[in-house]
Design a protein around this nucleic acid. Sequence first.
RNA 1: GGUAUUGUGGCCGAGAGGCUAGGCUCAGCUCUGCAAAAGCUGCUACAGCGGUUCGAAUCCGCUCAAUACCUCCA
Length: 490
Amino acid sequence: MRIHNLHIYNTLTRKTEKFVPLHANLVGMYVCGPTVYNNAHLGNARTFISFDVVFRYLQHLGYKVRYVRNITDAGHLESDADEGEDKISKKAKLEQLEPMEIVQRYTVDFHGVMRAFNALPPSIEPTATGHIIEQIEMTKQILDNGFAYESNGSVYFDVEKFAKDYNYTVLTGRNLEDLLNGTRELGGQDEKRGRLDFALWIKAKPEHIMRWKSPWGEGFPGWHLECSAMSRKYLGEQFDIHGGGMDLAPTHHTNEIAQNVSCSQNNTPVRYWMHTNMLTVNGQKMSKSLGNSFLPHELFSGSHALLDKGYSPMTVRFFMLQAHYRSTLDFSNDALQAAEKGFIRLMSAMKILPTLKTADKSTVSIADLEAKIYAALDDDFNTPIALSYVFEGVRIINSVNDAKESLSTDDKIKLQELMQQIVHDVLGLQQEETANTDKIDGLMQMILDVRTEAKSRKDFSTSDLIRDRLKEIGFEIKDGKEGSTYSILK
RNA sequence: GGUAUUGUGGCCGAGAGGCUAGGCUCAGCUCUGCAAAAGCUGCUACAGCGGUUCGAAUCCGCUCAAUACCUCCA
């Protein structure tokens, strides 16, 4: 276990607090996953990349982490007022497919996107439809505890009753009265008693495809319930970290807490709530409904109208890590361009690091650099600051390579370990080169030898011709003190 | 309308009462046959107006602007 001093910003307290897990060395973390009725867009990806770094860093520190991220494959209605159609069912009807075909298609898509961004798979990825029994049991328990009521085959959570015994708005700190006033009036024939009440179980209309038997008739679970039931099942009545996008805090997470508390009577089901901020486009939130969302493949290929060219998954991951997870991040061509250059510089430094020559003494302090990087990550996963010090490392590597600074053998090993662990293991950034096979390498070496020979004869027209022609094909030549090297341009 | 949050140099984006964030761009220099790369140096910063303080981009107040939530979204 690494000695550390991790602090996490907790939405519950609106403060950055020292992280102390419930059980030493073990961490339970739940993150709200996607509703698989559509392609995942980049905003979704940002959240999961942010939590991927959290997961990776916790593991790096030596914790045994159980990371649960659900797949919502039922119960998510079009409106939080518990009206409208189930999103999956709607899409299924639209495309004339089985709901499970929709679920399968977009789950596969989601996993592909996560893999492209080098996000580690969670420890458990449970689905809502796989936990109907748990959700029914939980609904029963909440009913028994008196915080829900049945109405015409549906079961609703009684928010105002809950608010008498507990703090319903702990997470957002909002005033309950304001919420009540801000919500629309209930219609005359409404099944709900209170304006803020939400469904635990919803009676299926005759045309509804996805339905299960329950003590209250055939129906399906409410959206908020699955996360409560599954986090409870796999992480217990109280666990360490719960995460999700900021837009989930006021409704989804608030209701989740109410369900957990009313079910188990445990006042604090989650100790640290983490919320990631939104990805914006021209200052506006990227969202499916606004129609300004980017699909990952549009970004990789550059086919989106707002882009000049494509950007690789690792460039995008690097770009996202240059902003803190609790800040909005604006998506633009210029910003991506800058990120791409920076990322390439980082990766080429990583590549020359093992080849550096060592000296008797170091002129730089690797221990200092290490301390600064860990201090940044310990401060609420501050990846932009950590990256700024990683670039200090890049400067050191390049300077040593230019013989302007020197490294002892020990320090070189230390720097290699540090860069490897931070850049690859924690930040999840990796070299992404087009197939660099041995044959290409041998061929290029031969060409470079011919060119070097020409240069030694001061036949610069030949050496320049070789360089220019190779560049046209997509190979860039760099002449260094120790000879020429090549890299494949994208 | 209510409730929040934010406003940093050409762009992105950290920080946060006194000490160069960083990346990209641009200009100059060093190195190099040239180029590229790399290193060094420099550039118009902290929305506006007041206040607290020896000192504020950082705290307080007001104004302006933007965004988010209150309705589906990570």
